[in-house]
Write a protein that binds this DNA or RNA. Structure first.
Lengths: 162, 162
DNA sequence: ATTCTTGCAAAGCCTTTGCAACTGC
DNA sequence: GCAGTTGCAAAGGCTTTGCAAGAAT
């Protein structure tokens, strides 16, 4: 599920360049980094470091594994990507020009379904207020079976009974 | 924050023994495993594999690292422990005889604060209904600064201004 | 006796890092 | 030219696994 992109004044590339320039020790905006940012923001999806390495290879965007890891880290610090701790490997998703949302993860087909719920945002504000907790970020993932996989399972069960 | 324990008919040890016996190929209930379960359920806290290895050593409960990992995996499958994917290492918490709850994690002092919120349970039911998603479990973690660390930070800022 | 469990050490997986060559500013 | 970046390979941190010895049923 893709939400309409949030209106942003700068392109991801510009935003990243600005971040790099704003650092105490100015960091460099290389062609490789630009290509990576352009590629990452050309499609909205969830990916991990390994998948990105593969995709870049397929797109003929040269980048070693080390560079991918290093650039991902910078993109997170720059606020362009968000990190999801959902298993043994880190997943990434757009954090810039994309609204806050929560996740449902299908354990069967590995689809990540996004959803928004004002009640959850409010619950976060409430509980943080009660505990005087200053929230920086949150992770909300519901794991289970998506509609398709669930239907397939029920159908299979029926067949098994025949 | 500890909640009152949920009323359960079996002790964790009994529940684990029953799980082991119920497996297709009956698994064995060793003294080592029993000692681990008793120790783990003697206190309510969040821990990772390494911390548990240390604790067991201090309690003179012999268990190699490999055994700890293997037993943790069994305890999760048995429904005694819940796994939290919150970073590079897995964390574990009681899943048996303890109510469902969400987490606030202080990034400064690493305290895990638990809270319950009916609004969140309801939000989960709602969104799963809307998407015909069959939820198996969920992870909800709010990251930030707890009240104490937040206060310390504000105090420090004041002192810096003097 | 059979089959599962243990401990050790080795391997696995994902991520990070040291270093020399390279490149943006 | 200086300071940051890249690629490679090696190391790191956490977890899993092969195997021989030990223990539960």
């Amino acid at each position: 599920m893709d939400f309409p992109a949030v209106q942003v004044s700068q392109s991801p590339e510009e935003k990243f360049r600005e971040y790099l320039a704003s650092q105490p020790r100015a960091q460099r905006y290389t062609n490789q980094q630009r290509d990576m940012v352009v590629y990452i923001f050309s499609r909205h999806n969830h990916f991990d470091a390994d998948q990105l390495v593969e995709s870049l290879k397929n797109e003929n965007i040269p980048a070693s594994r080390a560079t991918v890891y290093r650039t991902l880290k910078k993109l997170v610090r720059a606020g362009l990507l968000r990190e999801l701790d959902v298993g043994p490997r880190k997943f990434y998703e757009h954090d810039y020009g994309y609204p806050q949302h929560e996740h449902m993860y299908c354990q069967q087909c590995h689809t990540m379904i996004e959803f928004q719920d004002p009640a959850i945002e409010e619950a976060i504000r409430d509980v943080c207020g009660q505990h005087h907790f200053q929230a920086a970020s949150h992770t909300f993932i519901i794991r289970g079976l998506c509609a398709d996989c669930n239907r397939a399972k029920v159908t299979k069960r029926r067949l098994d009974l025949v």
